[in-house]
């Protein structure tokens, strides 16, 4: 069964300390990674479970969860979350497709279908998921006090 998504409070405390240069840390941002396992039930159907990644090998499917919450006392606006993709992970999509991506290390951004990658001969080709280096979400609603949400994307260990 799916394990509950526990907030890593230790990390949050560390985060608070690291951000003390600001007047306050009104937002919490936490990152979790799960590995997806497929097992076959007795009747032949497949069951998919998410586990804490104790064993990860090339080809495994990972689910990344970025949670955010406004724990401050004022509304945050122009809220943008960026997640560089680990080098050993190939992007495998999001559930809602609301992200924009970069295929050049974060210089240019756009919807994946609109991006192109330069080839050695000087021409370009359409960008693929395997080209993605960064993910970004632009949330156009002000994040009011207490508001929270999560961003989910999938990857495959190269």
């Amino acid at each position: 069964m799916m394990k509950s998504l526990k907030t890593n409070f230790t990390a949050l405390l560390a985060l608070t300390g690291a951000s003390s240069a600001f007047a306050a840390t009104p937002l919490q941002l936490t990152s979790d990674v799960y590995v997806e396992r497929q097992t076959e039930r007795a009747d032949g159907t497949k069951k998919v479970t998410l586990e804490k990644p104790t064993l990860v090998t090339p080809g495994d499917s990972l689910v990344f969860v970025v949670k955010y919450k406004n724990v401050g006392t004022e509304t945050a606006s122009n809220f943008v979350v960026t997640n560089p993709l680990p080098a050993a992970v190939k992007f495998d999509g999001t559930s809602d497709g609301l992200e924009i991506v970069s295929v050049d290390g974060g210089k240019n951004w756009g919807i994946l279908g609109n991006l192109r990658v330069a080839k050695a001969d000087g021409t370009t080709r359409p960008a693929l998921r395997s080209d993605v280096t960064h993910l970004k979400w632009n949330l156009n609603q002000p994040l009011t006090v207490g508001a929270e949400g999560k961003l989910i994307f999938r990857g495959v260990v190269k």
Partner: peptide, 8 residues
């Protein structure tokens, strides 16, 4: 994996 956020 590490995520970052900016806001006003």
């Amino acid at each position: 994996n590490i995520a970052s956020a900016t806001f006003d």
